[in-house]
Design a protein around this nucleic acid. Structure first.
Lengths: 300, 300
DNA sequence: TGACATAATGTACGCGTGTACATTATAGTG
DNA sequence: CACTATAATGTACACGCGTACATTATGTCA
């Protein structure tokens, strides 16, 4: 009878089902709002999203996209209270006070959520991250193996856990090689191409006066900006200095010379995060850390 | 009293509201599923999505992301029947029989939907498109103005309306200049970088034997693939031949030499599409066509 | 004060499904 | 056949909010 009805074209009303079951059937994905995607390093969100989509499909969840605007309040808990979502995945979480407060509230209330590519120390949050420390270690080690002696580091803002991880990997590799660490060859950008371009002046100076012969940049955008910037000083990556980026973005393959970089399993990170939250028999350990891979190209 | 309750932390249950109102409050966004975003020309979806997100926020809708998988059935109507969405925006619609059938069903049932960057002729669907004909016309005209005489065309599959539009613009510009059209200098790729790379062989032959001195490619990916390919034949874009791409992607700025291209207002297209569907006082005319802009760089 | 209009408040039911419980049918056992 | 265990079916209510209607309170005017 029910069978017959269904074959006659009956489909249950999802809203009624969900109201009765007290389950929204939605995973919320919170991500930064960027009118022009060019402007920030959000280019890998599409891959993470696809991974989440894959897992959501498997677990029979729908995917609710939520843009976080820089100025508007981040009341993530409201999403749960209004029953719009059963769980949340937070992409591009900022380590500022407002974000911390919003996440703390979620945690207190027991609402399930997972951070991707960003950890908050000592909070016990569910996270999926890539092993940026190892990736950075491998990158710097590779530069050393190529014969570079004094390796500068162009890092991102330390509000991101990944920046700290990369710094740790960088230091680890240098220390292991018996090289001295020097703050004067560590630079900071904001992950944008422009900030890489603007760092060129300081780094060109470092190449001349401090003996820098290679740079490890915390993402491809900055690395490419830096390449462009240093070219104006007459220096070419892979010839006059070594350069490694991070993310294995499209651009890293297209740029000339092709950028040596570190590949991050974004798709898998998204999938894992969603699985942790949605799969019924999920082990649900705190931090999941996925391996990254060094991709050697022409700038080293 | 209600005020007091609300200030005490009450938030209405969205599911119950929606069930009672018989409105899901969701816009569905249907887009291709791509485990590796690199693989296809979906890089601008993020911008379209942001535009949709902006409009959805203004109109108080939530955004439901739906991945269309190549093999799974495309039962878009079910989204409406189950009350998961009130309206749909279709990105990257394919002009194949299954997709046509799915859209026809939506149309017959009166479910509101809008196509972005793809039109279906004679169907009366709501669409938002860019003026690819004018864009292509401007591109080819610019090549002619640069002194190129015989302009090849690397187009995408004609399942996409935009391919047809570009062909029309290309022909228009050539005819206006009194040049003869020749099928032998029109090539077809699939919008991937690889297909551009692979077209290099045929196009190199065309440059040698048919006098081709410039190429207009239907997107940046193919243009960049072609650049790489022709380099292996010893030919450099902007020097040995003229080249124009399409989309003004990140890559077009990063590649060397920087690619002359056509900028498409993806963000605005997404926003407009959502506004057409969701805004209460929407004029809701059939096709909205937004202007594009020629961006002159180093390959012409 | 009474008659009326208007505003505030209260009540009942519907939205379409899940779920627990009661009822009935079916099967199995001696 | 009577008895019990199990399965199939039926029933009532809850999920939390709109909404329409009935009820009550407040204000206005003669």
């Amino acid at each position: 009878m029910l069978e017959a009805a269904k074959e006659l074209g009956y489909v249950p009303n999802a809203l009624a089902q969900r109201l009765a079951r007290r389950k929204s059937g939605n995973v919320g994905v919170i991500l930064p709002f960027v009118p022009k995607v060019h402007l920030f390093s959000t280019y890998y969100f599409a891959e993470i999203l696809s991974g989440i989509g894959e897992a959501a499909k498997v677990c029979n969840y729908d995917l609710l996209l939520i843009f976080r605007e820089p100025d508007s309040p981040r009341d993530y808990a409201k999403l749960f209270r209004t029953q719009k979502v059963d769980a949340c995945i937070v992409l591009g979480a900022q380590n500022d006070s407002e974000e911390r407060a919003a996440l703390t509230e979620l945690h207190k209330e027991g609402y399930p959520f997972c951070l991707v590519n960003q950890r908050f120390e000592d909070e016990g949050y569910l996270t999926v991250d890539a092993d940026h420390e190892s990736g950075s270690y491998a990158a710097v080690q590779h530069l050393l193996a190529c014969g570079y002696k004094r390796i500068g580091f162009l890092n991102g803002p330390d509000a991101f856990s990944s920046s700290g991880d990369r710094l740790a990997g960088y230091k680890h590799a240098l220390e292991e090689a018996g090289l001295l660490l020097a703050d004067e060859i560590i630079f900071t950008g904001n992950y944008s191409r422009k900030s890489g371009y603007e760092a060129a002046k300081r780094i060109a100076e470092g190449i001349r006066s401090k003996g820098i012969d290679a740079v490890f940049a915390a993402n491809d955008r900055m690395a490419i900006g830096l390449m462009d910037g240093l070219r104006e000083y007459g220096m070419e990556a892979g010839k006059d200095y070594g350069l490694i980026g991070y993310d294995d973005s499209d651009s890293s393959r297209i740029v000339s010379p092709k950028l040596t970089t570190v590949s991050v399993p974004f798709y898998e990170m998204g999938r894992k995060a969603a699985m942790k939250l949605l799969a019924t028999e999920s082990e649900e350990t705190g931090n999941t850390i996925l391996p990254v891979e060094l991709i050697k190209r022409e700038t080293t």
